[in-house]
């Protein structure tokens, strides 16, 4: 896979400068050095997220909404645990259904309910895999739309200044004072929860982070000599912004975006958990946890596994965001 090859490449590049690793390339100390220097573990987690999201239909062992009430709250099968339950279950399905009735027997017992079943007998693993796709789509659409909106407002505010700047900055101030989660709930009560609504809400959450920083950067960039000479040469405002200002902002935009992703995923999950986000039975991770909440004492796998998925993905994004920031723009250290 792509990730493995990059790992190996970086490894070989590093060996040139690393005398320790010359005798034996993969000493524990050397591996620790590589892991500390490059965000390999987060990259792997995110690669897994993207791959499962894109190929969810192929990877999921079962349909995400297919249920089998005989296996309500069935425990997970990983590591060959709970074998007693599953032996009994096999007997049960033999007893309940006539021999030869393949539809009634446990289909492909080797991979059914690897991570257990939920309260309706749906495969938790398949639902998590399909949830990855939803998370991916919702977050990326909201992130990029919010980025475009936020960057536009920030650049316009900084470039034009004056009354435009004043109005836009007051808008940002006001927006910071509105409790987002509750406002989202008001929107939900009025428009009914839907996938489109949650995307719009997340865009509204995403844009504000860019404005202040980009405005500041534009304020300093637009005074530079090269911008002035472009203006003297008759470049249009659009050209100045697109060709002369934006390239200087790319690092900041990238850093803010990478620090923002985690928050968006968490906001989506929280809203879905409250029943104000993606409506069930769509297997968004927040919905899975909300569904499993009542059974947390008796069937922990319904909440533990989807929550771990959210946690790992957000952790990976946050870690990567920190790394990108340290690399690209150390001045933004104060940002978080």
């Amino acid at each position: 896979m792509a990730i493995e090859s990059t790992t190996r490449e970086t490894a070989s590049v590093q060996t040139d400068s690393e005398p320790v690793a010359r005798q034996w390339r993969f000493t524990p100390a050397y591996l620790w050095y590589v892991v500390r220097r490059w965000p390999i573990i987060p990259a792997v987690i995110l690669a897994v997220l993207v791959i499962t999201g894109v190929f969810a239909d192929q990877l999921a062992p079962y349909d995400e909404n297919e249920n089998d009430l005989r296996f309500r709250n069935a425990p997970p099968r990983i590591f060959n645990t709970n074998s007693e339950y599953w032996d009994n279950a096999a007997d049960l399905s033999q007893a309940l259904f006539t021999p030869g009735d393949t539809a009634g027997a446990i289909k492909d017992p080797s991979n059914r309910y690897i991570l257990g079943a939920d309260h309706a007998g749906r495969d938790v693993l398949s639902r998590i895999i399909h949830g990855a796709r939803i998370s991916l789509v919702v977050t990326s659409v909201a992130l990029f739309s919010g980025l475009i909106l936020g960057v536009t407002i920030g650049v316009v505010s900084g470039y034009y200044g004056g009354i435009v700047d004043e109005i836009l900055m007051r808008m940002v101030d006001i927006w910071y004072a509105v409790p987002f989660l509750l406002l989202a709930m008001v929107a939900v009560i009025i428009f009914e929860a839907s996938l489109n609504l949650i995307i719009v809400l997340l865009i509204l959450l995403a844009w504000s982070g860019y404005v202040r920083n980009l405005r500041g950067e534009v304020l300093s960039l637009k005074e530079r000599d090269y911008v002035a000479s472009a203006r003297v040469n008759g470049a249009s405002t659009f050209r100045i912004i697109a060709k002369h200002l934006l390239p200087g902002l790319v690092n900041t935009i990238f850093v803010i975006a990478s620090l923002r992703v985690g928050q968006l995923i968490l906001a989506e999950a929280s809203l879905s958990f409250l029943g104000a986000g993606i409506p069930g039975p769509t297997p968004a991770w927040g919905v899975l946890i909300a569904d499993g909440r009542e059974y947390v004492g008796s069937a922990w796998w319904q909440t533990v596994f989807p929550g771990t998925a959210i946690f790992l993905v957000v952790l990976a994004f946050n870690f990567l965001g920190d790394w990108v920031r340290d690399r690209l723009d150390p001045r933004l250290r104060q940002l978080d």
Binding site: T303, L315, F319
Partner: peptide
Amino acid sequence: ALIGQSLPTFWLGLMMIL
């Protein structure tokens, strides 16, 4: 800090209850 920023609050609550 990194873990705290990455944990979904509601899930952390549920896990602590568990």
